[in-house]
Nucleic acid binder design. Sequence first.
DNA 1: AATAGACTAAAATACCAAATTAGTCAAAAG
DNA 2: CTTTTGACTAATTTGGTATTTTAGTCTATT
Lengths: 203, 203
Amino acid sequence: MKTTDLIKEEQTRKEIITAAQELFQKYGIDKTTMDDIADAVGKGKSSLYYYYKSKEEVFYAVVNKEKDEIMHSISDAIKDIDSASEQLKNFFLTHFNQVRKKLNLYSVIIKGNAKKHIDLFYKIQKESLDWQITMLKNIILNGIKNREFKKIKEKECEAIVSVLVMMLQGMDSNLVFAKDNSQNMIGVEKVIEVFINGLKYGR
Amino acid sequence: MKTTDLIKEEQTRKEIITAAQELFQKYGIDKTTMDDIADAVGKGKSSLYYYYKSKEEVFYAVVNKEKDEIMHSISDAIKDIDSASEQLKNFFLTHFNQVRKKLNLYSVIIKGNAKKHIDLFYKIQKESLDWQITMLKNIILNGIKNREFKKIKEKECEAIVSVLVMMLQGMDSNLVFAKDNSQNMIGVEKVIEVFINGLKYGR
DNA sequence: AATAGACTAAAATACCAAATTAGTCAAAAG
DNA sequence: CTTTTGACTAATTTGGTATTTTAGTCTATT
């Protein structure tokens, strides 16, 4: 296998999950057959199994791609910033915005209420949880080092961060059910500002 | 109809929904029949329909009772307190604790994944949303009047509060799925403290 | 390496009969 | 006049079965 082959294979995988993503959003996961996906990429169904060994794996790849995109967006939004406060703010706002963008697919998964898919979805969501915890913990600990935030114990910081991601996750699920969330944007920003002030001052 | 009759009727209604509550928790909503509930209160099925005109109404009454209990607990926990900070803290902690207590029933409803019941459950949850928003808004506005919190515009306060209840709700749903949440307790307290500090100081 | 057609096993769907169960009503009991 | 009940019906749910669709495999082809 040459390097060009590897690139081509990656390209095909990309095409497959892009097609799958569109179909899943339009028709739901159960109503989308492997034949549908194969047709969409102009191949026979059997060819799909050369790239993914099951439909579940295709679904996993689709959701995982969305997760990666969100994580990268957040990373990009904080990497060139020195202030821990700004990093925190960007972290939450970017997360909130990104999730809003991906809402269509999430709605299909959750509202299609097939337990199997929802479980996998939560499993993947959980995978990014550890990442979020590590990121937030580092941001806050750095902010303490900078004297930007007041000092707190590392254990305390961990407890805080784990509740923060719990709230984040909760807001995500909430977004799925709420009809209109455009006005919440401003509230989210305000809440973050208050919280950051709390990390800076007091006691 | 005499006043004693009214009291007796209320008593019977109470018995019915208490029995229903237990049965719902044990066997789930669909597996609990009206006959089961009637047997539990020692009456014939038809008698239930004298008090509630449908099974749905019984279910509604059960969930609504839990909602009321939570609201009363919170009211009790803040009514004799002057400090807005303490009121805020008690509000969140009491809410968190109460929801943890009611978790069994919630799990049965959510995990039994019958769309009909989940929808009603969310509808009732939404009804307490307005109450929560009003309460929290008043607490914060009072805190501003006391000079306990720094001044913010009323519109800003509303935006903040609506996001806070969104996060609260999100945490609730999250509790249902999480196995162990005992350790979150401390984190919740810390996050509230930081948030309250943010309301007090800064900018 | 990559694709596809023919195939199988598993799952979803459709259908129907039987059984449960929600909800009604008229009559009885207190 | 309030409350309860048993007998009844209409609506759902269940269980079993035949049929179709679909996931996934295997072999052959390019």
